[in-house]
């Protein structure tokens, strides 16, 4: 095989990616079209009806958009103390030691557990705890799903942030110590500001992950089609309504579900793009 053929082969195989992406976008747009056309794009986004009474079908994405945003936001908040601690543990305090390797391995393994198993654990272990604490009577809901989502994204965020904490030059830290700073002061006033943009971007990428997480949320959020009015109330996320109803849906309802999928796809794509851009910039500086 000569070089020219080789080049063509590589080029041709790289075409698969634009092809698949184009196909994804095309398929989502064409099949969501019916719903957008029927309800109007803005109406679909802002309506909170979800009823499939024959002859008077009403579908709107608002409950699911708010469910998704609520679970994601709460998950990020819950995961901050844990992921920051793990990141500083492995990236600064115990950098290069055996215990850091152990903790790193543990979090790596946590990242590998399938989301359906997280869901089971959430359902059979976490939900009873939430019930027994009298936080909510049925145990499932936005809060339960968020706690589980937080556990799922901790490994991802902490290994990314730890990378940026490790990149803070040793010279800089010693410079601060030489002025009489304690370790906590070096962490707060030197490492944190310097690694801050990188750490922040790892949280943005984690949002991208949490938005589309399906099975865990489906098993824990309670599966009701309303806008959650408190953190303990039940609801549905964009991903969980699709998981729950896609199999039984047809016609307008199917199109509405695909429309929700399209919205989820676009939000995730935008968040991921922002996160990747930020992380690139943080890596360069």
């Amino acid at each position: 095989m000569n070089d020219k053929l080789y080049k063509i082969l590589l080029f041709a195989s790289a075409l698969i990616i634009p092809l698949v992406c184009g196909g994804v976008i095309y398929a989502l747009f064409t099949d969501a079209y019916e719903a957008f056309q029927h309800f109007g794009f803005l109406k679909f986004l802002t309506s909170s009806d979800w009823s499939y009474t024959q002859g008077d079908e009403q579908y709107g994405a608002l409950p699911f958009i708010s469910g998704t945003l609520m679970t994601t936001l709460l998950a990020i908040i819950f995961c901050i103390p844990f992921s920051l601690s793990v990141a500083f543990f492995t990236g600064e305090y115990f950098r290069g030691t055996k215990i850091a390797t152990v903790l790193g391995t543990v979090t790596d393994l946590l990242a590998g557990i399938p989301s359906i198993i997280y869901g089971l654990w959430g359902f059979y272990t976490l939900r009873p705890i939430i019930m027994s604490l009298n936080i909510s009577p049925q145990g499932s809901g936005v809060l339960t799903a968020s706690v589980m989502l937080a556990i799922m994204i901790i490994p991802y965020v902490s290994s990314l942030s730890s990378e940026f904490i490790k990149m803070v030059p040793k010279d800089l830290k010693e410079g601060a110590y030489s002025l009489g700073a304690t370790r906590a002061e070096v962490v707060r006033k030197i490492i944190f500001p310097v690694a801050g943009s990188g750490i922040f971007s790892s949280y943005v990428l984690a949002i991208g992950r949490a938005l589309g997480e399906t099975m865990t949320v489906t098993m824990l959020i309670g599966n009701t089609n309303n806008i959650p009015d408190s953190i303990t109330s039940t609801g549905n996320s964009m991903a969980s309504i699709i998981a729950n109803q896609f199999g039984e849906a047809s016609d307008l309802r199917l199109s509405s579900l695909i429309a929700i999928g399209l919205i989820l796809f676009l939000i995730t794509a935008i968040i991921n793009m922002i996160g990747k851009m930020m992380i690139k910039r943080a890596r360069i500086s």
Binding site: V24, L28, G208, T214, A243, A269
Partner: peptide
């Protein structure tokens, strides 16, 4: 860039497509 896009796409959407 599109590889990143695809990697970040939620799996439930891959299912729909």
């Amino acid at each position: 860039y599109l590889t990143d896009l695809l990697q970040g796409t939620p799996s439930v959407i891959i299912g729909i497509v």
